[in-house]
Nucleic acid binder design. Sequence first.
DNA 1: CAGATTAATTGAACGATGTCTAATTTTCTA
DNA 2: TAGAAAATTAGACATCGTTCAATTAATCTG
Lengths: 198, 198
Amino acid sequence: MGRRSDHSREELRALILDEGHRQLSEVGFARFSAREVAKGVGYSIGTIYNVFGSYDALLLALNGRTLDLWLAFLEERLAGCEEGRLDAAIEAYFDFALGQRHAWTALYDFRLPEGASPSEDYRNKVAAITGVIVREIAAVLPAGAQAQALPLARSLLASVHGHCFFALNGTFAMLGESDPLGAAKARVADALARYGAG
Amino acid sequence: MGRRSDHSREELRALILDEGHRQLSEVGFARFSAREVAKGVGYSIGTIYNVFGSYDALLLALNGRTLDLWLAFLEERLAGCEEGRLDAAIEAYFDFALGQRHAWTALYDFRLPEGASPSEDYRNKVAAITGVIVREIAAVLPAGAQAQALPLARSLLASVHGHCFFALNGTFAMLGESDPLGAAKARVADALARYGAG
DNA sequence: CAGATTAATTGAACGATGTCTAATTTTCTA
DNA sequence: TAGAAAATTAGACATCGTTCAATTAATCTG
């Protein structure tokens, strides 16, 4: 079969992303297959390569979508939240990871070949999520510690990530920890206490 | 070729583990291949399956070896260390992950199929590493807070893991963080300060 | 020591993967 | 309307994990 006019380039791209994200969320990164996505949208594997160029590029696009969903989820949770916004953000972190388990895990299971770096677009998405945390931390830091908001946000993101990661991969269960979210909140509180936040 | 007397069962197992760990450390989890290991030891792929039963079992054994190396590395670093032992442990965490980059990453990239859980042997190895941290934290906690040593150790392990993970996977670089180790140490110090450690 | 039994080892087969490319077909352009 | 450009396909390729019948060497047995 040759050229078709079923979908424009952008429609096709969106179609593949929709179906791809659906499958990734269902089967997880390890079992994810570009061929299967092609089947799902009724095109051949070659078309996936025409649109995305490579398997890696497809996965980067799918992970980008996950980041978009994550940011939206985070902002929505914070939208009607007056007090305890930072705790709410941590809860949102956990809830998204648990709810979108496979998609979230794929963010970290998938790695570009050594030397390669993600697109500016992708980096911006990561920075956007970080930006939310920077904002929330700045809001609770005293005036004299505002300069610490960015480095602190990066560090606390890493801490929360570690807790969330151990919760999902079974490490915490193996060690008898039954309240990963509580532990994560406590560590964030520890750090903020030192900067006189409140 | 039929039965050979080149190696006993245990020698063969050790041979495969040696070569497997060498290759895993060299090429990383994504490019690791059981067939290639078979080539490396001069046996056929079938023999790998006779000895280990499955690809998953082989990888679990290889990750087990990484955990052994990690524990030994950690203890050796702490051996001649009088003060600042906890900071030394965090440094050791980072140094091992950086030095054994591929092997360390494989600990978390590889996942058992859903529902399956690692062997008791594997769980013990993870618990052993945790045990070292519990011990070191207990040593700096005041008498009244000893009960917190275990939960705190689990939580601080997660925090340090998050920092190490972000350092290795490029997230920190992407966010402009240039001292992940320093940040990890600071978060641990924050937590200990709250418990009156010193 | 000879023959039978057991155990280990092999390599081909299978279905699946990502990747590439020649051929085909449609659409656009001059 | 003829030719150029773009899109789509299907098959080929090398690789992967997995299985298994056949083969061969070591061991046991009488």
